[in-house]
Protein backbone atom coordinates (compact mmCIF):
# COMPACT_ATOMS: atom_id res chain seq x y z
CA UNK A 1 0.00 0.00 0.00
CA UNK A 2 1.49 3.28 -1.04
CA UNK A 3 0.55 6.44 0.72
CA UNK A 4 -0.17 9.38 -1.52
CA UNK A 5 0.22 12.94 -0.36
CA UNK A 6 -1.45 15.37 -2.68
CA UNK A 7 -1.22 19.10 -2.32
CA UNK A 8 -4.59 20.58 -3.23
CA UNK A 9 -4.99 17.38 -5.22
CA UNK A 10 -3.17 18.29 -8.40
CA UNK A 11 -3.43 15.68 -11.11
CA UNK A 12 0.02 16.37 -12.47
CA UNK A 13 2.29 19.20 -13.61
CA UNK A 14 -0.12 20.49 -16.23
CA UNK A 15 -2.91 20.59 -13.69
CA UNK A 16 -0.71 22.60 -11.33
CA UNK A 17 0.19 24.96 -14.17
CA UNK A 18 -3.46 25.42 -15.09
CA UNK A 19 -4.28 26.12 -11.46
CA UNK A 20 -1.56 28.77 -11.27
CA UNK A 21 -2.72 30.37 -14.51
CA UNK A 22 -6.27 30.59 -13.20
CA UNK A 23 -5.22 31.84 -9.80
CA UNK A 24 -2.82 34.48 -11.11
CA UNK A 25 -5.43 35.46 -13.74
CA UNK A 26 -2.88 35.11 -16.48
CA UNK A 27 -3.80 35.40 -20.15
CA UNK A 28 -3.01 31.93 -21.38
CA UNK A 29 -1.84 33.32 -24.76
CA UNK A 30 0.60 35.75 -23.18
CA UNK A 31 2.09 33.94 -20.24
CA UNK A 32 4.52 35.96 -18.14
CA UNK A 33 7.12 33.22 -17.99
CA UNK A 34 9.18 34.62 -15.13
CA UNK A 35 6.23 34.94 -12.81
CA UNK A 36 4.74 31.58 -13.72
CA UNK A 37 8.06 29.76 -13.42
CA UNK A 38 8.70 31.26 -9.99
CA UNK A 39 5.27 30.34 -8.75
CA UNK A 40 5.57 26.86 -10.15
CA UNK A 41 8.91 26.20 -8.53
CA UNK A 42 7.64 27.62 -5.26
CA UNK A 43 4.87 25.05 -5.36
CA UNK A 44 7.33 22.29 -6.10
CA UNK A 45 9.26 23.18 -2.95
CA UNK A 46 6.09 22.85 -0.95
CA UNK A 47 5.39 19.49 -2.58
CA UNK A 48 8.71 17.85 -1.70
CA UNK A 49 6.92 15.30 0.37
CA UNK A 50 5.47 13.77 -2.78
CA UNK A 51 6.43 10.40 -4.15
CA UNK A 52 9.67 10.66 -6.01
CA UNK A 53 8.44 9.19 -9.30
CA UNK A 54 5.60 11.65 -9.35
CA UNK A 55 7.86 14.55 -8.48
CA UNK A 56 10.08 13.74 -11.46
CA UNK A 57 7.24 14.55 -13.82
CA UNK A 58 6.82 17.91 -12.14
CA UNK A 59 10.54 18.54 -12.48
CA UNK A 60 10.48 17.85 -16.22
CA UNK A 61 7.95 20.61 -16.66
CA UNK A 62 9.94 22.91 -14.39
CA UNK A 63 12.92 22.40 -16.69
CA UNK A 64 10.74 23.16 -19.72
CA UNK A 65 9.50 26.36 -18.08
CA UNK A 66 13.03 27.51 -17.33
CA UNK A 67 14.11 26.66 -20.86
CA UNK A 68 11.31 28.74 -22.36
CA UNK A 69 12.03 31.56 -19.97
CA UNK A 70 15.69 31.63 -20.94
CA UNK A 71 14.90 31.41 -24.66
CA UNK A 72 12.72 34.47 -24.31
CA UNK A 73 15.56 36.37 -22.72
CA UNK A 74 17.92 35.67 -25.60
CA UNK A 75 18.15 38.43 -28.19
CA UNK A 76 17.28 37.46 -31.76
CA UNK A 77 20.28 37.81 -34.05
CA UNK A 78 19.08 39.00 -37.41
CA UNK A 79 22.17 37.59 -39.16
CA UNK A 80 21.80 34.05 -37.84
CA UNK A 81 18.41 33.23 -39.22
CA UNK A 82 19.65 30.88 -41.96
CA UNK A 83 20.37 27.22 -41.49
CA UNK A 84 22.67 25.03 -43.61
CA UNK A 85 20.31 24.91 -46.55
CA UNK A 86 19.92 28.63 -46.53
CA UNK A 87 16.32 28.45 -45.41
CA UNK A 88 15.04 31.01 -43.07
CA UNK A 89 14.28 29.88 -39.55
CA UNK A 90 10.99 30.97 -38.22
CA UNK A 91 12.43 33.16 -35.54
CA UNK A 92 9.06 34.76 -34.98
CA UNK A 93 7.85 31.57 -33.35
CA UNK A 94 7.02 32.12 -29.74
CA UNK A 95 8.92 29.62 -27.55
CA UNK A 96 5.79 29.45 -25.42
CA UNK A 97 3.67 28.15 -28.27
CA UNK A 98 4.13 24.45 -27.59
CA UNK A 99 3.52 24.89 -23.89
CA UNK A 100 0.33 26.85 -24.56
CA UNK A 101 -0.87 24.11 -26.89
CA UNK A 102 -0.22 21.47 -24.24
CA UNK A 103 -2.00 23.43 -21.53
CA UNK A 104 -5.01 24.05 -23.78
CA UNK A 105 -5.13 20.39 -24.78
CA UNK A 106 -5.06 19.30 -21.15
CA UNK A 107 -7.63 21.93 -20.18
CA UNK A 108 -9.96 20.61 -22.88
CA UNK A 109 -9.97 17.10 -21.42
CA UNK A 110 -10.06 18.27 -17.82
CA UNK A 111 -13.27 20.09 -18.67
CA UNK A 112 -14.57 17.08 -20.59
CA UNK A 113 -13.98 15.00 -17.45
CA UNK A 114 -16.22 17.36 -15.48
CA UNK A 115 -18.95 16.95 -18.08
CA UNK A 116 -18.57 13.19 -18.01
CA UNK A 117 -18.92 13.20 -14.26
CA UNK A 118 -22.14 15.18 -14.62
CA UNK A 119 -23.62 12.77 -17.12
CA UNK A 120 -22.64 9.84 -14.91
CA UNK A 121 -24.41 11.52 -11.99
CA UNK A 122 -27.49 12.06 -14.13
CA UNK A 123 -27.43 8.43 -15.20
CA UNK A 124 -26.95 7.17 -11.64
CA UNK A 125 -30.47 8.18 -10.59
CA UNK A 126 -32.01 5.66 -12.98
CA UNK A 127 -31.98 2.13 -11.64
CA UNK A 128 -32.47 -1.00 -13.62
CA UNK A 129 -32.39 -4.72 -12.90
CA UNK A 130 -30.47 -7.78 -14.02
CA UNK A 131 -32.11 -9.76 -16.80
CA UNK A 132 -34.77 -12.19 -15.68
CA UNK A 133 -33.41 -15.69 -15.21
CA UNK A 134 -35.23 -17.42 -18.02
CA UNK A 135 -33.74 -20.75 -16.99
CA UNK A 136 -35.98 -20.73 -13.97
CA UNK A 137 -38.99 -20.82 -16.32
CA UNK A 138 -37.63 -23.71 -18.33
CA UNK A 139 -36.22 -21.44 -20.98
CA UNK A 140 -33.27 -22.57 -23.02
CA UNK A 141 -31.47 -20.23 -25.35
CA UNK A 142 -29.51 -21.64 -28.26
CA UNK A 143 -25.75 -21.60 -28.12
CA UNK A 144 -24.39 -18.49 -29.71
CA UNK A 145 -21.38 -19.93 -31.43
CA UNK A 146 -18.70 -17.81 -32.99
CA UNK A 147 -18.62 -15.07 -30.41
CA UNK A 148 -15.44 -15.55 -28.50
CA UNK A 149 -15.39 -14.54 -24.91
CA UNK A 150 -12.45 -12.61 -23.65
CA UNK A 151 -11.18 -11.71 -20.23
CA UNK A 152 -13.28 -8.53 -20.24
CA UNK A 153 -16.48 -10.57 -20.44
CA UNK A 154 -15.27 -12.46 -17.41
CA UNK A 155 -14.46 -9.26 -15.55
CA UNK A 156 -17.84 -7.88 -16.56
CA UNK A 157 -19.58 -10.95 -15.17
CA UNK A 158 -17.60 -10.62 -11.94
CA UNK A 159 -18.58 -6.96 -11.60
CA UNK A 160 -22.24 -7.72 -12.19
CA UNK A 161 -22.11 -10.50 -9.65
CA UNK A 162 -20.60 -8.11 -7.08
CA UNK A 163 -23.35 -5.59 -7.78
CA UNK A 164 -25.98 -8.25 -7.33
CA UNK A 165 -24.43 -9.34 -4.06
CA UNK A 166 -24.46 -5.78 -2.83
CA UNK A 167 -28.21 -5.74 -3.26
CA UNK A 168 -28.55 -9.08 -1.50
CA UNK A 169 -26.34 -7.98 1.40
CA UNK A 170 -27.67 -9.11 4.76
CA UNK A 171 -28.71 -6.51 7.30
CA UNK A 172 -26.05 -7.71 9.71
CA UNK A 173 -22.88 -9.69 9.33
CA UNK A 174 -20.46 -11.49 11.59
CA UNK A 175 -16.74 -11.38 11.04
CA UNK A 176 -14.78 -14.59 10.96
CA UNK A 177 -11.22 -15.25 10.08
CA UNK A 178 -11.38 -17.80 7.34
CA UNK A 179 -8.48 -18.17 5.00
CA UNK A 180 -8.66 -20.26 1.89
CA UNK A 181 -5.84 -20.71 -0.56
CA UNK A 182 -6.29 -20.56 -4.31
CA UNK A 183 -5.22 -24.21 -4.48
CA UNK A 184 -7.91 -25.35 -2.03
CA UNK A 185 -10.48 -23.22 -3.77
CA UNK A 186 -9.56 -24.70 -7.16
CA UNK A 187 -10.20 -28.21 -5.82
CA UNK A 188 -13.44 -27.01 -4.32
CA UNK A 189 -14.58 -25.48 -7.60
CA UNK A 190 -13.71 -28.62 -9.52
CA UNK A 191 -15.71 -30.83 -7.17
CA UNK A 192 -18.56 -28.34 -7.17
CA UNK A 193 -18.68 -28.35 -10.97
CA UNK A 194 -18.43 -32.12 -10.99
CA UNK A 195 -21.32 -32.41 -8.54
CA UNK A 196 -23.43 -30.36 -10.92
CA UNK A 197 -22.73 -32.77 -13.71
CA UNK A 198 -19.75 -31.08 -15.30
CA UNK A 199 -21.25 -27.66 -15.90
CA UNK A 200 -22.33 -24.92 -13.59
CA UNK A 201 -23.26 -21.25 -13.61
CA UNK A 202 -20.46 -18.74 -13.16
CA UNK A 203 -22.48 -17.08 -10.45
CA UNK A 204 -23.23 -20.28 -8.59
CA UNK A 205 -19.59 -20.39 -7.62
CA UNK A 206 -19.93 -17.05 -5.89
CA UNK A 207 -22.82 -17.77 -3.60
CA UNK A 208 -20.81 -17.67 -0.43
CA UNK A 209 -17.87 -15.85 0.99
CA UNK A 210 -16.75 -12.33 1.78
CA UNK A 211 -14.90 -10.03 -0.58
CA UNK A 212 -11.56 -11.81 -0.24
CA UNK A 213 -13.28 -15.18 -0.64
CA UNK A 214 -14.92 -13.99 -3.84
CA UNK A 215 -11.63 -12.77 -5.20
CA UNK A 216 -9.98 -16.10 -4.36
CA UNK A 217 -12.79 -17.84 -6.24
CA UNK A 218 -12.29 -15.54 -9.22
CA UNK A 219 -8.53 -16.11 -9.21
CA UNK A 220 -9.08 -19.84 -8.94
CA UNK A 221 -11.35 -19.77 -12.00
CA UNK A 222 -8.71 -17.87 -13.94
CA UNK A 223 -6.05 -20.37 -12.85
CA UNK A 224 -8.26 -23.33 -13.78
CA UNK A 225 -8.89 -21.74 -17.18
CA UNK A 226 -5.18 -21.25 -17.66
CA UNK A 227 -4.62 -24.92 -16.91
CA UNK A 228 -7.45 -25.83 -19.29
CA UNK A 229 -9.18 -27.74 -16.49
CA UNK A 230 -12.33 -25.78 -17.19
CA UNK A 231 -13.65 -23.65 -19.99
CA UNK A 232 -15.99 -20.71 -19.67
CA UNK A 233 -18.71 -20.23 -22.22
CA UNK A 234 -21.87 -18.25 -22.70
CA UNK A 235 -25.07 -19.54 -24.27
CA UNK A 236 -26.87 -16.70 -25.95
CA UNK A 237 -26.95 -13.02 -25.31
CA UNK A 238 -28.36 -12.57 -21.83
CA UNK A 239 -27.34 -15.81 -20.28
CA UNK A 240 -24.92 -16.25 -17.49
CA UNK A 241 -21.46 -17.56 -18.11
CA UNK A 242 -21.20 -21.30 -17.83
CA UNK A 243 -18.26 -23.12 -16.31
CA UNK A 244 -17.63 -26.47 -17.93
CA UNK A 245 -15.12 -29.14 -17.01
CA UNK A 246 -12.73 -29.66 -19.85
CA UNK A 247 -11.86 -33.31 -19.15
CA UNK A 248 -15.50 -34.30 -19.07
CA UNK A 249 -15.99 -32.74 -22.48
CA UNK A 250 -13.03 -34.47 -24.02
CA UNK A 251 -14.17 -37.80 -22.67
CA UNK A 252 -17.47 -37.39 -24.49
CA UNK A 253 -15.92 -36.53 -27.80
Amino acid sequence: MSYNVKLEAFEGPLDLLLHLINRLEIDIYDIPMAELTNQYIEHLHAMRVLELDELSEYLVLAATLIEIKSKMLLPVHEGDVFDDEGQEFDMEEDPREELIARILEYKKYKEAAVQLKESADERAVHFTKPPTEVEAYGGVTPIDSGDELNVFDLIGAFQRMLQRRRLKAPMSASITNNEISVGDKMDEIMSQVERKGGTCDFEELFEEGDMSGLIITFLSILELMKRSDIIVEQHGNFNRLQIRMQLEEQAHE
Partner: peptide
Protein backbone atom coordinates in the same frame (compact mmCIF):
# COMPACT_ATOMS: atom_id res chain seq x y z
CA UNK B 1 -9.51 12.51 -16.81
CA UNK B 2 -8.04 9.35 -18.28
CA UNK B 3 -11.51 8.10 -19.18
CA UNK B 4 -12.33 11.42 -20.88
CA UNK B 5 -9.14 11.29 -22.95
CA UNK B 6 -9.76 7.69 -23.98
CA UNK B 7 -13.41 8.38 -24.76
CA UNK B 8 -12.64 11.28 -27.08
CA UNK B 9 -9.43 10.02 -28.67
CA UNK B 10 -10.09 6.29 -28.93
CA UNK B 11 -8.49 4.05 -29.90
CA UNK B 12 -5.57 5.52 -28.04
CA UNK B 13 -2.35 4.27 -26.48
CA UNK B 14 -1.31 4.80 -22.89
CA UNK B 15 1.57 7.03 -24.01
CA UNK B 16 -0.85 9.40 -25.74
CA UNK B 17 -2.94 9.59 -22.58
CA UNK B 18 0.20 10.27 -20.54
CA UNK B 19 1.21 13.02 -22.94
CA UNK B 20 -2.05 14.90 -22.59
CA UNK B 21 -2.01 14.72 -18.81
CA UNK B 22 1.74 15.14 -18.28
CA UNK B 23 1.70 12.27 -15.78
Amino acid sequence: EVLAIIAYKQPVTRIEVDDVRGV
